[in-house]
Amino acid sequence: MIRVTDIQKHFGALHVLRGITFEVKKGEAIVIIGPSGSGKSTLLRCINLLVEPDSGQVFIDGVQVNRHGIRHEWVREQVGMVFQSFNLFTHLTAIDNVTLGLIRVKGMSRDKAVEKARVLLARVGLAAKANAYPAELSGGQQQRVAIARALAMDPKAMLFDEPTSALDPEYIREVLDVMTALAREGMTMIVVTHEMGFASNAASRILFMDAGKIVEEGTAEEIFQHPKEERTRAFVSKILR
């Protein structure tokens, strides 16, 4: 579904990604962990081309997408993204946040878009909040609207960039529940998170990244209980406490 080969990315003198290669099969949920600054977010952004890799290839459904002649907008329609800081459109209600892309990007009629958005908001448990503005919602509610907004575009895969890091502890659970349900339904997902519970429950594999490289890859048990690499062990022991 998503294949990435030997991605390199520099920001000025900073060498952020140093040759990343991995593959995500259809229906898999991959969790990426790693210390801050290890390049996790940049890697996610390289996949939907919000950041263009300096070299290496990104394949989505067998099509190389980071090349001239492929519209970035098309790529981003294929891959939904959820951000750490939600980034809901502040001037629109929850339901308008979900319908905007449907109407303006997909060209759907307003009635159909609203119908679809209602279904999605109900799916993330926010049917009652359809007409609330983002500033009137809690962090957890905002993030669930953001998930609905991304799902509305019928993406083939979803990217989550630390979706719970900006949330108060009492709201983390509701967002993780939505994500777990999504993984169970067979959505292909790449999730950058430090939520060990989610990683153990929902992840097919876990990648540990450090300094722009994938250091270790394995199941939750392998990574958390029996890490092979010293750096993984050091990191895991820090976050498991």
Binding site: N48, L50, H72, E73, W74, R76, E77, G80, M81, F83, S85, N87, L88, F89, T90, L100, G101, R104, V105, K106, A146, R149, A150, A152, M153
Partner: peptide
């Protein structure tokens, strides 16, 4: 982040 979010859904 607003622009990024819009771009991420294909704008």
């Amino acid at each position: 982040g607003q622009i990024e979010a819009a771009r991420a859904i294909g704008f």
